[in-house]
């Protein structure tokens, strides 16, 4: 994973609450054994009609030129499929911002370098109302800045942030705990 300290990109707005992982990637695409190439399946049933023809949904149009997804409340609810962030990343999104992001989705997203960021209701309303603006997400200062000095802070788990900024995953950290894990196992067996 590449280290991320900041992201500068424009926003695409999906103003709908409770967008679940079945919308982000329908289950019939989950028979894959790979994690690549899932962008074609992202929001598939919104982007293609029953005959397989592309719809006029903005996800087939302007979305392609924006890398920050502004989504309605409680984004990513539903299943634990990591295929959801894989699909969003492959589709071209680098960040998703909402007023609430479901637990497992957020954890999965951050592990893959998709910035899943929760902002306050007021800031969220501003972002929803102003599609296409350029934002700068700064992991160093934990600030999002926009046009005309608009800015807001956000919270991110300190550990997830460090992993993102260093471009490492958690597995190395866990494997380095081997002695503690072995001691724990011995204690329990005793």
């Amino acid at each position: 994973m590449n280290p991320i300290t900041e992201l500068r990109a424009t926003t695409f707005v999906l103003h709908q609450d409770n967008i679940d992982t079945d919308q982000i990637i329908p289950a019939r695409f989950l028979t894959t054994t790979e994690r690549t190439g899932l962008g074609r399946a992202a929001f598939y049933d919104w982007r293609f009609d029953a005959s397989g023809a592309a719809t006029t949904h903005p996800l087939n149009g302007e979305a392609k030129s924006h890398a920050i997804l502004i989504a309605g409340h409680n984004f990513g609810c539903g299943s634990s499929r990591e295929h959801a962030p894989w699909a969003l990343l492959d589709f071209g999104f680098r960040a998703v911002i909402s007023s609430e992001i479901a637990d497992i989705f957020r954890s999965n997203a951050l592990k893959n370098g998709l910035l899943a960021i929760v902002v306050g209701a007021e800031e969220h309303a501003y972002l929803i109302a102003n599609p296409g603006i350029e934002l700068r997400i700064d992991l160093e200062t934990m600030q999002i800045t926009g046009p005309n000095d608009w800015h807001t802070g956000f919270a991110l788990d300190a550990f997830a942030r460090r992993c993102l900024m260093m471009g490492v995953d958690q597995l190395g950290y866990l494997l380095a705990q081997d002695a503690a894990i072995a001691a724990f196992e011995r204690n329990r067996a005793a």
Binding site: R35, S80, E82, N108, K111, Q170, L171, L174
Partner: peptide, 14 residues
């Protein structure tokens, strides 16, 4: 429930 990355973490480190 956990994601696939975490499935790998648990397999490798429990």
């Amino acid at each position: 429930g956990i994601g696939t990355s975490e499935v790998g973490y648990v397999l490798a480190s429990q």
